[in-house]
Design a binder for these strands. Structure first.
Lengths: 271, 271
DNA sequence: CTCCTTCATCGAACATATTCAAACACGGTT
DNA sequence: AACCGTGTTTGAATATGTTCGATGAAGGAG
């Protein structure tokens, strides 16, 4: 097992190296094979095989020259790393703006997704809040914060049941039925695509059905989606644009798109 | 791979060696077999067997070349972790025996609890199995193992919804309603106390209600509880002993208790 | 076209599970 | 005390699996 010179990760187990690669992809949006070769001091073939394994596990997507996080098809452009990190910035900005819409003492629903997850992080300290979600990650977030004091108890969390999708959403009849027995002031829903023709859409049929239930149980619907999702359509539409009371997005949305969107949603909020 | 001479830890008891390995994994995130061989001065096979035992106890995950800490997605709860170290051997034995009751291709329910968690660890590889649970920890366990999508699909997991108790159970009307819409062959339920007068009981009222729903939806009920729970009664009873088809417990139960219990439950299974 | 990336194949080194036997402690009997 | 069966822990041997790097050919990107 001969190792090379640069050796930040010399002696790591193969599994640890893969975990580090996966973390890098999550953090930066993408990695290059050549960079990983230098960083870990292994051959390019070993890195490629790691990327193969991770891609098979659905943790990233291989592209020419390296690998990128899932969910973005336009990865061949130069500078996709920068774009990707900007999008996390966009998500944080959207989350910040959306959090301001949450009423004290209210009941809100959060769909599964990375944008709603960013929003959830800002709601853990809001007291007297009730949160309904079908995301195990979001539920865990609140469970951790709920621990230390007995005094000021933060939000109450209700997790819908269901079966777990690869993207960590709980879906299916169990989830839908649970949601239908509840009512909340506000539903924050993420999506994979948002457009005039297809409205809010996702590639997962079951997730679409669950999102429909979330929307039906809410008095008002807030869509959270960054500008890169405008014009995209997933397999299943779960709501027309007219069902959206407020769309919270980031400043990257083109002016023409802003104007178009504003005609269909009630309020357009640029973070 | 043969012997070693550096023997920092030679002469340690097996348990001490294992505790040291577990601590190392927690501290550094991973260990390799060859390093442990040098450090303890034992053979590679001995190290492997230690890692096997620790992996069975859920303290680490074996990988090629060594072992790594478990996925960090599992939120560490003191309430849960504290109980995990109690009566470990008995719980593992009970889990082993209970796992043998699970039919291939069946649908089973697992209540929340440390004993059912130990049982769940033995069910992750059973194929064609459907598992219903109100424990986020158990659901996470299966989600981790589910990774290779096409290859060998393990169990299908349905998580009931609800609100989270300190001991990691999802309870409340949402959970109860979800369970009532399902049916399963077998329900494995843990409890805080089991006695002739109070039957199966728990200190948490909501959890009792949820367990009642689980029992009502099951054709057969299997109670899993170690001997230390015999004679105890929590605030809320959720089932009389006569509702229990099989009680799986460990050899620590006194003979007089065995005889008493056997009169009330249909089958008594001593692991 | 040229440069770089990717992939398939192979051999070497390493890791693993399985099996068997030796060493040791324990508990009770003679 | 010595003896013996039982069960546990450990190390060695072997066959099988896995990881990894070198090589060279095929295929994209610019």
């Amino acid at each position: 097992m001969a190792q090379a010179e640069t050796d930040e990760g010399r002696g790591l187990l193969a599994e640890q190296r893969r975990a580090a690669i996966a973390a890098e992809v999550r953090a930066r949006g993408g990695v290059r094979v050549t960079d990983l070769v230098l960083r870990f001091g292994v051959s390019d073939m070993t890195v490629r095989r790691d990327l193969d394994a991770l891609a098979r596990d659905g943790l990233l997507e291989k592209v020419h020259g390296g690998a990128v996080a899932l969910g973005e098809s336009s990865a061949h452009e130069p500078g996709f790393e920068a774009k990707r990190t900007l999008e996390t910035a966009a998500k944080e900005a959207i989350a910040e703006a959306a959090a301001a819409l949450v009423p004290r003492g209210g009941a809100v629903a959060l769909s599964a997704g990375t944008t709603t997850y960013a929003l959830a992080r800002r709601l853990t300290d809001v007291s007297e809040l009730t949160v309904v979600t079908n995301s195990m990650r979001i539920a865990e977030l609140f469970a951790q914060r709920l621990r230390p004091p007995g005094a000021r108890h933060g939000a109450t969390v209700v997790l819908t049941g269901g079966m777990r999708t690869p993207s960590d959403a709980l879906v299916g009849p169990v989830a839908d039925q649970a949601i239908r027995s509840l009512n909340f002031d506000l539903a924050f829903v993420g999506c994979h695509g948002i457009s005039i023709a297809a409205g809010l859409s996702t590639p997962n049929l079951a997730e679409a059905e669950t999102n429909r239930a979330l929307i039906a149980a809410a008095r008002r619907v807030v869509a959270v989606a960054d500008h890169s999702k405008w014009g995209l359509a997933g397999l299943a539409t779960f709501a027309p644009l007219t069902a959206v009371d407020t769309w919270v997005t980031d400043g990257g949305l083109a002016e023409t798109a802003c104007a178009e969107a504003a005609e269909h949603v009630r309020h357009l909020l640029i973070a």
